[in-house]
Design a protein around this nucleic acid. Structure first.
Lengths: 257, 257
DNA sequence: CCGATGCTTCGGCCGCGACCGAAGCATCCC
DNA sequence: GGGATGCTTCGGTCGCGGCCGAAGCATCGG
């Protein structure tokens, strides 16, 4: 009786706890939008059942929906959703000791580099995050409360230094423009496979977006894993000073426990 | 049919999704151990029901149990569990816009400073984390894969510099001894209220422990919130160079959205 | 040794929620 | 307009799992 009211997080966890919904969410973890029918097939349920699940997920604001003609496209509501799921995966991943030999190649690729909603994760994402932090491009959030008005939802968690603006300009990213977006600016997101944060938020999305636009990285059709191109190898070395090919190969190798 | 096997994280989320279990976990978020009977009362269920829940949570390695006489003490299995729940709270917290006026003081105190499993969180925890990072006491994890043997579960995510060892010696913390522990050494943990990582792992626990031992901080009986003592105000200023009273007051003020 | 206490296991009850088929709208194409 | 496609709502079934009371072990106290 001390506090028998249901905690808020329990309702969210229950949403994530159903197998069908979990499959839907996992499929959307790459940030792409999918139709209700596609998601029904992925979840292995009929269209009515999937519709019910999707309705609940939208009501809980875990998913957002865009109606386009007779199709309805569902996607994750934000990177915070993806971050929470990554965190759950980190918690669930180490326990069962599955020893699945057969899909080691797949998980290896996922560990090397993948998308987490709209930003980069895996070894590649962590390397970029660490590099920006180490070079002083990203500063760990003053939280300057001296002046009032600290709306805790709006202000970014990292700030970008002058050096950071310079570096990101090489990627043709306008930091000020990103900061003007109404979303989280630059937030750490606990990485499922590396157990260290990578960069989420608008800035993380901008970096990932430029990597795809420039052909540095390619999305794989049915996986969150990304492929590094030769141009990407050069570009990432030039901008971030990281040996992406070596890092990603090392992460892929160490796929098993 | 693309991938209709249940994702691992769904099972964990389902565990967290039951109201009774969620209440149990929330009660254990302060890192203290409690008996089965206490937890049954907190969850609002009878002893047999609680026993079933606790058994499942232990089987899933979310909880660990210590038998002592005829009592069995349950506690969170590790800081990663606490981190995941914090992440879920962050996801669940912003949506419903609860506008609970009556317990604003409570959430204010929680935002100011609280325990997260065995380490400090809230504004206080974030301040310490940031300070250590800013002063170069904590270095963001090389992840040196050059040599083999990178057991991803064992190595810490932050490393402590010489300056850090010096600073922590002022707290009578032997960094080498902490590093020898079989647990995560120093990991960032996403803070529920501040949306920025604080310091988890053995080092975070050691810092929190010394703060309690020296009477700098007091645990409140039925809350995760901590109270700053005058000695703590002085000590934290001396060791970390932070104005804890001012920071915590500011965080408590901004409790509402 | 006996009763009290703490915790667990065992059956059985019961309700929530996932699931499906059928039907109802909306949209697109011919 | 008519048929096909995509999605949702509506009833109804059913199984999983939370819940409790009673009983079974263990431990502590006298």
């Amino acid at each position: 009786m001390t506090g028998s009211t249901e905690p808020h997080f329990a309702a969210v966890a229950a949403l994530l706890g159903d197998p069908a919904r979990a499959n839907i969410l996992r499929a959307l973890m790459d940030g792409r939008a999918r139709t209700a029918k596609e998601l029904a097939a992925i979840a292995g349920v009929t269209a009515p059942t999937a519709s019910g699940h999707l309705g609940k997920l939208v009501a809980a604001e875990l998913l957002s929906v865009l109606a386009q003609g007779r199709h309805r496209y569902y996607r994750l509501a934000g990177s915070l959703v993806a971050c929470t799921i990554e965190s759950l995966m980190a918690l669930a991943g180490e326990k069962p000791l599955p020893r699945h030999r057969h899909n080691r190649a797949l998980t290896g690729a996922l560990r090397a580099g993948r998308t987490c909603y709209d930003h980069l994760a895996g070894r590649l994402g962590v390397q970029i995050h660490d590099r920006l932090l180490r070079e002083g491009c990203l500063l760990p959030a003053l939280h300057d409360d001296g002046d009032g008005g600290h709306r805790h939802g709006g202000d970014g968690d990292y700030t970008v230094s002058a050096a950071g603006r310079l570096l990101l300009a090489k990627l043709e990213i306008d930091v000020a423009a990103v900061a003007r977006q109404k979303r989280g600016f630059a937030r750490p997101c606990l990485d499922w496979s590396e157990r260290v944060p990578h960069l989420a938020g608008g800035l993380g999305a901008a970096i990932a977006g430029r990597c795809f636009e420039q052909g540095w990285l390619l999305r794989r059709p049915d996986s969150r894993a990304v492929t590094l191109t030769p141009a990407g190898q050069l570009g990432l070395a030039r901008v971030f000073g990281i040996d992406a090919a070596r890092e990603m190969a090392a992460a892929a190798e160490g796929a098993d426990g």
